[in-house]
């Protein structure tokens, strides 16, 4: 038995390796950018990445929950768009106050997630298909509300959009970053310190086993899609702070960015393994790529996609090699 207990000790740091690699990549990109471009290596550049991607970070947090259970949520981008659309139309049209509109938007997003989770759990339909239907539904609802972009002029929203929170040494963040940070912290706490969080990991590890261990697998699955729906709606609210408009074509393809961020952050798409910190780093890496390309100036926007694709490839290959080694 003594030899067996040795086997465990070696593998503990193993689960942190993907996150470490992502962190190293981020630092390397930052340093390389700092050497190559004037005025790149400042704290504000990192903060700008947060400011520009706060909504993506919030959405990716929800996606992390779903992917950890071994599921996938394709509806997030559409739900983000729907949220901006509902918020903008209610505030601009009938002139509802934001403190009514925002909770309502969050409720709609969560309810959509809840229904999708229920369909997946109760009728045993593939998450891919159910959330695909959710994606169509939410996008369709956007176009039903209106096909044009609706500007948001509500003073509270514009105040949120224009507020700068000053930090030390001339650095600043927007309120959205604080919202995103709170979401990340709460989510990390839930994943690590609550039964729901552990049930998420267990379900992703082996749904069958989790069921036989008496864990509330069904409730967990419904919960993660509800969380993802909530995060998407909140991401939508934050995006409407950023854009000050509601539009059915907002956040097209954002589900891909969210999935890419989660994967680059070291979470396995099969579920059960990964950390929220990885997702944060994944979003940062994606954001920094765009910053680098904008500093480069001569490169066209489609290079973003190609670079993200190559990064995905590199990380997936790394995970693959890594998991092959731990198994043997």
């Amino acid at each position: 038995m003594t030899t067996l207990s040795l086997g465990g000790g070696r593998t503990i740091p193993a689960k942190y390796v993907p996150v470490l690699v992502t962190a190293c990549l981020f630092v390397a990109m930052f340093v390389a950018g700092g050497i190559r471009y004037e005025g790149f290596a400042t704290g504000q550049i990192v903060l700008n990445v947060f400011i520009d991607n706060a909504f993506l970070l919030i959405v990716a947090v929800g996606m992390t929950f779903v992917i950890l259970t071994g599921g996938i949520d394709l509806s997030v981008g559409s739900v983000v768009a729907l949220s901006t659309m509902i918020a903008a139309s209610l505030m601009t049209g009938p002139g509802w106050p934001p403190y009514v509109v925002v909770p309502l938007v969050l409720l709609v997003g969560s309810a959509l997630g809840l229904v999708m989770g229920y369909l997946i759990h109760a009728f045993d339909i593939q998450p891919f298909i159910v959330t695909l239907a959710g994606m169509f539904l939410a996008r369709g609802l956007c176009y039903t509300i209106g096909t044009e972009s609706i500007p948001i002029t509500d003073p509270t929203f514009t105040a949120f959009a224009q507020t700068r929170i000053d930090l030390i040494a001339d650095m600043w963040i927007s309120p959205s970053v604080i919202i995103a940070a709170v979401v990340v912290l709460v989510a990390a706490y839930v994943l690590h310190y609550t039964r729901l969080g552990r049930a998420v990991y267990a379900t992703g590890g082996s749904e069958q086993s989790a069921l036989l261990m008496g864990l509330p697998v069904g409730r967990t699955k419904v919960a993660v899609y509800t969380i993802s729906g909530f995060c998407s709606a909140l991401g939508g609210v934050v995006l409407s702070f950023y854009m000050l408009s509601g539009y059915g074509l907002h956040a097209v393809g954002m589900e891909l960015d969210a999935i890419a961020a989660v994967v680059i952050g070291g979470t396995l798409l099969t579920g059960g393994t990964g950390f929220l910190l990885g997702t944060v780093l994944g979003v940062l890496v994606l954001g920094l790529i765009q910053t680098v390309l904008s500093f480069e100036g001569t490169l066209s926007s489609w290079w973003t996609k190609i670079v993200i694709g190559m990064l995905l490839f590199a990380f997936i290959l790394l995970q693959r090699l890594f998991s092959a080694r731990t198994r043997s």
Partner: peptide, 26 residues
Amino acid sequence: EVNLCTNLSVAENILIGREPRRFGRI
């Protein structure tokens, strides 16, 4: 067939579902 979650730690596999908690925190 061992019906446990091999991605979780040994301790969790033994106690998941009735983890010792303090103020709702594991």
